[in-house]
Nucleic acid binder design. Structure first.
Lengths: 339, 339
DNA sequence: ATGGCCGATGCAAGCGCTTACAATGCTGCA
DNA sequence: TGCAGCATTGTAAGCGCTTGCATCGGCCAT
């Protein structure tokens, strides 16, 4: 018994009449123990209700079977689905997920990374590539395998599992342009320190360029994540003259805000103005009109990331990047230019 | 340096020319160390980039400054806001939050509890009271302070911070009845092992009874969490003859599903049928018509729970329960009975 | 001047577990 | 029959940190 009254390895060993080493082996490498002994030990484990002390195990084994993930926010659904899949796959492989949120704050992220490393995370999942290079140095020094998700950049400091934000936005923008829209405005997430947001902006500009429109004239409002903010930004964009006929948003949450504001303003979507989103979170198909958006394979991304990261941890591999496909989901919030 | 190449207490001590005890004290009880020494030590800490090894600290101190929380699901927004507040308050008090999800599965919850205890959680937050009494015994034996949230029952095994689900639903149902509705149906979450769901059902029955209606005749469909499920259940309820004029849902997610299905079925809300939710998640005010629902003080609940739990941990108090108020939010999905 | 105190620091014993290495007892083959 | 070799189990040395207790000066009161 330890201070907290919980049974320890010693208790189990005594009860089973073996050494602590044998008990430990029963739990961690059962093949090394002959069946009769193992049964006796397991019986002792059961009757005592023994659970190994995690900290002690970590200390001794220098392994935690824990993966840390730091996401910008827990408040919304963007990362929830992917993370859920990530954790399920980790669980399947015997790992536990530790999640921390950085609240979109680089310093906070830095401190969370240190915390997770101090807690002995065997590997780390980060969102997006943009961050102080010192962090990558630190992680390399500490020898903690790190994988980036929700973004794909083949030659960044860390391997990444994600999709091509720029290309996806390009495709969506082309669809918008093909429907006759020429006056397009954008509502983006804050692009500072967020390569995903930046890539999406670039994608839109690429498309404008490709179709002979002036990307320099593109009206962009950057605003933090939040439905309210999307609404406010939309309102501002609607004061432009001539008024945009399509507003492309950097993510679904902003788009939903825009949609609501459009209704407040008495604008019909898509007859008066088209609105598009990005991510295809559940919300996108619930609002009416449903959002035209880019579908991101969240679950697949989570699963792949888990597999890759575990591989990096166990085989000490450098990790390979992987690009997943996205898909444009046409719904009713986007219509042809007609006025 | 340890195996991973990270500096240890010994490195810092050597560099600062003091013993490890002094370094440890600098970090944990600075007052015990004279200023000059402390500065020297801190300088060493900085230049080496030392971060204490968590597992080692836990082993030695038998404290983790970690609070565990097990929630039924991460997939949706119900617990997100409250948990966010919970974690912010914990952070303020120097604690870290470890979240695990039970996927609404009692066995899973049991194993998550064991895991968190093995990880040395100083305290635990659980959702709702319903669970195997053995779990409470275990927790008591392990001497792990436990608090229940999202539910309030003054004389349960564990203290709770929450609200009166029954009373809240009663109030909402009264509002519905006062609007003239007599044929009311319910779509509830699965009530098995979920006192919140059960209390809400009871609240509705109380109201029916109080107004001379037969609670035995109430058509209830229980279905797992999910928009789709809410839709399917609604469809079934609409086949009743006579058709219900109001469908009260156990939570907003089911209600949103019901709302969508109503539109699919060509039913106008609230003219043809009224729909109500519970929780007042963000979604409730985004759908159209916006949902009439019960507002739950998520953030306040999270904050209070954190304060109370930390108190239980630090002062070894038994913990006091606390009931927070709810509020009925009238929106457009509920209208008077008119047909 | 001397003893007693107290503040600052060091010493060293664990915390509960894993694991390299040693010890033991069989098996099977020459 | 004897011994190499193997499978099984035990021994004990840490993992990096905290903390009770010992130590050591310096200061004050007598």
């Amino acid at each position: 018994m330890n201070l907290r009254g919980a049974p320890t390895l010693v208790d189990v060993a005594r009860r089973a009449g073996v050494s602590t080493a044998t008990v430990s082996r029963c739990l961690n490498a059962p093949d090394l123990v002959v069946e009769a002994t193992r049964e006796r030990v397991m019986a002792a484990v059961d009757t005592l209700g023994y659970t190994p002390n995690f900290a002690a195990r970590v200390m001794a084994a220098q392994r935690t079977f824990t993966i840390g993930a730091i996401i910008p926010t827990m408040e919304n659904a963007i990362f929830a689905r992917g993370l859920q899949a990530f954790q399920e796959e980790l669980h399947r492989r015997g790992y536990t997920l530790l999640v921390a949120s950085s609240a979109y704050d680089p310093d906070m992220e830095k401190s969370q990374i240190r915390t997770l490393v101090a807690r002995g995370a065997d590997g780390l999942l980060l969102i997006g590539h943009d961050r102080d290079p010192l962090i990558y140095d630190y992680l390399k020094r500490q020898d903690v395998p790190t994988l980036v998700a929700w973004s794909f950049l083949p030659d960044a400091r860390a391997p990444s599992i994600g999709f091509d934000n720029r290309k996806a936005m390009f495709d969506l923008a082309e669809a918008v342009i093909r429907l006759g829209h020429r006056r397009i405005a954008m509502i983006s997430g804050v692009s500072q320190g967020n390569d995903r947001a930046r890539q999406r902006i670039e994608g839109l500009k690429d498309a404008l360029m490709a179709h002979g429109l002036d990307p320099g004239a593109l009206a962009i409002i950057e605003t933090p994540y939040g439905i309210e903010n999307g609404g406010a930004a939309f309102k501002t964009q609607m004061t432009l003259t001539p008024r945009p006929t399509a507003v492309m948003c950097g993510n679904d949450v902003l788009a939903v805000g825009a949609l609501g504001m459009a209704q407040n303003l008495g604008l019909r979507v898509p007859q008066d103005v088209s609105i598009t989103g990005f991510d295809d979170i559940e919300l996108a198909s619930i609002v009416s009109p449903a959002l035209t958006t880019v579908h991101v394979p969240h679950r697949e991304m989570g699963r792949c990331a888990a597999r890759e990261l575990v591989d990096m941890v166990e085989r000490k591999s450098a990790g390979v990047s992987m690009r997943l496909g996205t898909e444009i989901i046409m719904r009713l919030s986007l219509g042809p230019y007609a006025s």
